[in-house]
Amino acid sequence: MKRIPYYPGCSLQTKAKHFETSAMAVAEALDYELVTLPRWNCCGAVHSLTTDDLMHHVAPVTTLLRSKEFSAENHLDDSRLVVLCAMCLNVLKRTNKRVQELLEDRTKINDFMYLENSKYDGSTIVIHFLELLREIGWETLSQKVKHPLSNLAVSPYYGCLLLRPKEVGIDNPEAPTIQEDLLKSLDAKVIENPLKNRCCGSYHTLVDKDVVAELGYDILINAQKAGAEIITTSCPLCAFNLDQRQENILKKHPDFTKIPVVYFTELMMIAFDLPLEKAGLDMHYVDPRPLLLKKEMLHE
């Protein structure tokens, strides 16, 4: 079993717990152990964009430093830091890039972190779990498939922060295929949603749920028009906006038909035929289980 450090972030051990548990189960099936950092703090969720604001980069840099120390002390097989949440990925990678490129900023931030054991040198490499899967290889993945998703029309949704800005994105920002490649390795019927990169409305869900519902409606209806039965995502916030906000969509568009939105890892568990207690299929507003039962992908 190869051990690799893993950073959960604020939502992955609470509201999006099942994303974490399913990802860990899938990783284990592929002979990887995601080792949770023993000391971590919130990344701040959004990357501070102004030139003069260094304070908000301290939190992510602390995490990057601790990951580096942790993997060295414990002799992990892979020293790169894996994340699941798209927002964490974005913040950690962009901050990392900034301290790699701007020496002056790195020095100042290190000065802020005087209580840490060592100085951060910019050497931690941050990757998304999807990238790790891509490295393991779609071919290897497909060999693990015991329960092909051949019957299931799945439309992947990317949103913003896995892809943009392109210097930290994990795939082509306009025409990504990483989720499609993954789903194909599970033998799923992949449905192309032209709005798969469109923003879900992000944190505006807090202040203006109607806007977010309207954006979600556009995204979901386009997927449905193209023939999708289920949507996959890799961000707890996208998941919330596309799943939970269907309640609000229905209020505005009574003719709307609900569609389940799940993490890609949940479908992987089904395809790999892993015990589903940790999949969290019961954690969704729109329950995916009836569809999966109908498609004979679940046992009653």
Binding site: S11, T14, V46, H56, S202, Y203, L206, Q244
Partner: peptide, 22 residues
């Protein structure tokens, strides 16, 4: 202005992000 019941539903990242941005 927030509905406390509604607040319970959100993943934590929503609150962090909105507070940071707004």
């Amino acid at each position: 202005d927030m509905d406390p019941e509604e607040l319970k539903k959100f993943p934590q990242m929503v609150l962090v992000a909105a507070y940071r941005k707004l």
